[in-house]
Design a protein around this nucleic acid. Structure first.
Length: 479
RNA sequence: GGCGCUAUCGUCUAAGGGUUAGGACAGAGCCCUCUCAAGGCUCAGAUCGGGGUUCGAAUCCCCGUAGCGCUACCA
């Protein structure tokens, strides 16, 4: 069975790029009947923050794409240290006593740095002596650079890659402070957790040579690798919070009113497509269509807003979300709307209780003009509450010749009428407009304005029935 | 600097030797219509440059250019 892992490090908020990687990992695991491991790669104690961890967990939970296992790498430190020591004992790794930063100073403009002189060949006795005397050291992997040949692998996305042993540097395994490096912790865990597919950002492509070397030295089976193209900002630089603002944070999309399915659909189309022109896809359809081999090698630009103070998201993401908002069965949409209403202090328990059916109808009537959940509270207050304001254009509709007077008359007639349906209301309204010799549109738009405070919205007659007879009469009278 | 990856409308992408280079978002317009949306239709818009190979190249090869990544005791 396939075992995939998503391994974020809590050194920054979960952003779109990380979420896209997660989506692809999840899609791959699901579509192949495999499992997904969430591993928090928190080996860099100095840079980890609780806020980042919160952001990652909150963001991933919001996506509603569950993982099967969860681990914290920091809790596995003894295992990593033991692995490094085992490699040292086998002679596959060695102690490097060079002071931190010294190598960098010596490097100069010449070729790439490969190892620190003298350290590879330090005798075991000398090495042990210096270590036990308390001299700080880092443990490095001894790349078999004297051997011909090199490391090759076939990436599921980026195809064949090869690098000679002689060109791979002796990377660090254990830092002077005793903490494992990313390379060590990651490969040890991938090996021990039985990871079969490593799916990650393209920025790790060239690290893969090192990881294969390490995996082999430790006797683990080699997993398959799939590297994903990167996500760029409109300026062409790698997406980051520092450069592109808080808009790249996943929780921001949640707060903005995205549906998990809509957001996930958007992310899935960055660097991948089902090849058949379909774009609006449910989670199930995505699972069905996803092929890791179809992932592109080209970086994708995410249209996030650059203007300061203006949070602008990719218009296509908004549109895609609107598609999901409109096509999802209302009952399925209800919990999301509820969460949003609660967030703005608008919720009433009757919406999911006594008036549930009515609430679902209202949502259904309103959603065709919305793309984000956040628009419900902003644009639909009059449908759910009796205190609402009037927009200038709505007032203008009421101020037209005799409209207010006619609306009050309409209220009286509606109150008297035996029926209260879209048809009966339309009948009353058209009768009245005919009598007064005015266009029906005048009263129709006036009614909408009086009932909702807005010049725009669903069909006016739909608004009547949505609000119910009592409210309609009261609001028409009040103009 | 070294090593590597990539290059199709503004953006996301399809076509992988033969198509008027297709779709979607955004833009313009029309239809529908009680408004606004939604929906339908139409328009505009691209193969980075130069060489090859070939009857034929967006597609294969080479060179250039640009972008990105890696080149840490970050991940």
């Amino acid at each position: 069975m396939n075992r995939v892992r998503f391994a974020p490090s809590p050194t920054g908020l979960l952003h779109i790029g990380g979420a896209r990687t997660y989506v692809f990992c999840w899609l791959f695991a699901r579509s192949t009947g495999g499992q997904l491991v969430l591993r928090i790669d928190d080996t860099d104690a100095g840079r980890n923050t609780q806020e980042s961890l919160r952001s990652i967990l909150d963001g991933l939970e919001w996506l509603e794409l569950p993982w099967d296992e969860q681990h914290y790498q920091s809790e596995r430190r003894p295992i990593h240290v033991r692995a490094a020591e085992a490699l040292l004992a086998k002679g596959v790794a060695y102690r490097d006593f060079t002071a931190e930063g010294a190598a960098e100073a010596e490097r100069g403009e010449g070729g790439p740095w490969l190892f620190n002189p003298g350290m590879r060949d330090l005798g075991a006795i000398e090495s042990d002596r210096r270590a036990s005397s308390g001299e700080p050291f880092v443990i490095r992997f001894r790349v078999p650079r004297e051997q011909p040949g090199g490391v090759g692998f076939k990436d599921l996305v980026f195809r064949k890659h090869f690098r000679r042993f002689a060109d791979i540097e002796d990377f660090a395994l254990l830092r002077a402070n005793g903490h494992p490096t990313y390379h060590l912790a990651s490969t040890v865990d991938d090996g021990e957790m039985g990871i079969t597919h490593v799916i990650r950002g393209q920025d790790h492509l060239t690290n893969t040579f090192k990881h294969i070397l390490l995996l082999q030295a430790m006797g683990f089976d080699r997993p398959s690798f799939a590297h994903l193209p990167l996500l760029l900002g409109p300026d062409g630089s790698k997406l980051s919070k520092r450069r592109h603002g808080p808009i790249v944070s996943v929780t921001n999309y949640r707060d903005m009113g995205f549906l998990p399915a809509g957001f996930m659909n958007y992310l899935s189309l960055l660097g991948w497509s089902p090849k058949d022109n379909r774009e609006v896809l449910t989670v199930e359809q995505l699972v069905d269509a996803f092929r890791i081999e179809h992932v592109l090698r080209t970086n994708a630009v995410v249209q996030v807003g650059e203007k300061p103070g203006e949070t602008q998201v990719d218009p296509k993401a908004v549109w895609l979300n609107g598609q999901h908002l409109r096509s999802m069965p209302p009952a399925q949409l209800l919990p999301y709307v509820e969460a949003y209403f609660r967030g703005s202090g608008w919720w009433r328990d009757e919406f999911s209780g006594a008036r549930r059916e009515w609430f679902l109808e209202a949502i259904d009537a309103l959603r065709s003009r919305l793309n984000l959940l956040s628009e419900f509270p902003v644009r639909c207050r009059a449908y759910f509450h009796d205190d609402f304001g009037f927009e200038p254009k709505a007032l203008a509709n009421l101020d037209r010749d005799g409209v207010r007077d006619m609306l009050r008359e309409l209220a009286a007639r509606i109150e008297r009428a035996p029926d209260f349906t879209e048809q009966s209301v339309e009948h009353e309204l058209r009768m009245l407009s005919a009598e007064r010799e005015v266009k029906a549109g005048l009263l129709i738009n006036g009614s909408r304005a009086a009932l909702t405070g807005q010049p725009v919205g669903p069909s006016a007659f739909r608004v009547f029935t949505l609000l119910g007879k009592d409210r309609v009469v009261a609001r028409l009278r009040a103009v």
